[in-house]
Design a protein around this nucleic acid. Structure first.
Lengths: 194, 194
DNA sequence: CGTTACATGTAACCGGTTACATGATTTG
DNA sequence: CAAATCATGTAACCGGTTACATGTAACG
C-alpha cells in the first residue's frame, strides 16, 4: 500500500489539501505513481483516522471548504518504518507486449503503426524529462542532497524512456525485415544455406 | 482488459486447461503480464459465457476433472479486433522510487541496501532471459516469423532489466558520494567555488 | 453575471490478491 | 498407501477506475 506513503512524503515536504496533492502527483512522483482525486480523498480519510495526519480547521464555508493536512509524529514514524521494508521487484504489465505476442501467434496484424505511435509517445516523455533536468538539475550547479536524490528518480525515468525508444526502433526494423523477406508464419525456405 | 486476450492468444497457440494456462504464464508472456489461477478460472468462465472459447467434454470424474479449452471463431475475431486497438502508454508504478523520494525528503534512510538488493534481482532476471535467448534464439539460426517476434518480446525484457541495472549502479555511486561528501539535507557550504 | 478553476465528496464497479476447500492423479 | 502434484473452485477483500453530484472562489 504505497499511496499512503506517497502522500505522507508529499505532506512532509509541504502541508497540502487533497486537491493540491492530486496536482502534485503530476510533477513530483507522477512518473512512478499515480492517483486520482477520489483515491486521494479516501486515503486521506483513512490516514486521518489512523492518526498519521491532521487537518487544519476548515477554511471557507459550505460543502467544499478546504482541508489542509499536515503529518503527525505517528505518520512520520510510519513512513520511516515503511521505507525500511523490503519490497519485491515491481511486476511489469504491458499491453503492447501482449499485442505483440498475439501478432507472433495469430499472424501479421500490422502492429508497426502502434509501435511507432508508442515510440513517439516515449519520445515526448523523454523530451519533457530532459527539459525538467535542464531546468532543475543543470550540470555544474551545486545541488542539495534532496535535489540530487530527486535527480536520481528523474534519471530512472529517463533511462526507462530511452530503453523503450531503442527497443521500438529495433522492433520496427525487425518487423520491416520480416515483411519484405520470407514471411508467412512458418519457416522460410531459404534455398542456398544448408 | 488484457487478461482475456492473453488467454485467447495462449489457447490459440495450443488448447489448454486453466491450470496449464497458469503455468504457461511463467514462461511465455510472464515478463509482461501475470495472473493467478483464480483469476484465470474466473476469466475462462466469462469467456466461455461470451462464446469466445469452448471446453472439450470433462475428462475424469468428481470435482476436479479437467476442462480443456479451445478458441471459437468469435474468440479469434475478438482477439484480432482488440489487437488493432490503440492503447495508452502503460503507467509505471514503482515502490522503490516512492521510497527514494521519501529518502530525498525525510533524510537519509539507508536505502542503499535495498537498491543493491533490487540490482541483484534484476541481474538474476537478466541472466535468466539471456539463457532463454541462447537456447531459443541462438544467433545464426534460421528462425520462423513467430520465433523472431517472440524474440522481440524477450529483447524488451532484456533492455528493461539492463536499464535498471545501469540505473542501480549510478544510484549507488551517487548515494555513496552523498554519504562521504557534504550531506545533511541542506545545501552544503562548499567554500572555494563561489 | 457567466465561465473557469478550485475543492470535496458518494456510489458502483472491476480486476487483482489472499485465504481456504476439495478432490483426482501420479509416483515413490 | 502416503506424499506430491495436478486441477478446479468459492469467498472476502482491497485498491484503482469511472460516473456523478455539489458547491466556492476568482476573473473577465
Amino acid at each position: 500500500m504505497s499511496l499512503a506513503h506517497v502522500l505522507l512524503t508529499s505532506l512532509l515536504e509541504q502541508p497540502a489539501t487533497g486537491f493540491e496533492l492530486a496536482r502534485r502527483f503530476d510533477k513530483a512522483i507522477g512518473q512512478f505513481w499515480q492517483a486520482t482525486h477520489q483515491q486521494i480523498y479516501r486515503e486521506l480519510a483513512r490516514m486521518e483516522a489512523a492518526g498519521w495526519i491532521a487537518a487544519a480547521p476548515r477554511v471557507g464555508s459550505g460543502r467544499s471548504r478546504k482541508r489542509s493536512y499536515g503529518v503527525l509524529p505517528a505518520g512520520r514514524e510510519e513512513l520511516l518504518r515503511w521505507a525500511g521494508e523490503e519490497a519485491p521487484l515491481q511486476a511489469l504489465r504491458d499491453e503492447l507486449m501482449v499485442r505483440l505476442r498475439a501478432e507472433a501467434i495469430a499472424g501479421p496484424l500490422g502492429l508497426e503503426r502502434e509501435i511507432a505511435r508508442h515510440m513517439a509517445l516515449h519520445r515526448d516523455k523523454l523530451r519533457a524529462y530532459r527539459a525538467i533536468e535542464a531546468e532543475d538539475f543543470a550540470p555544474g550547479r551545486v545541488l542539495s542532497r534532496k535535489a540530487r536524490v530527486m535527480h536520481l528518480i528523474l534519471k530512472a525515468g529517463i533511462r526507462y524512456e530511452e530503453s523503450w525508444i531503442a527497443w521500438s526502433a529495433e522492433a520496427l526494423a525487425e518487423l520491416a525485415a520480416l515483411a519484405e523477406g520470407g514471411e508467412g508464419g512458418v519457416q522460410p525456405p531459404r534455398r542456398s544455406s544448408r
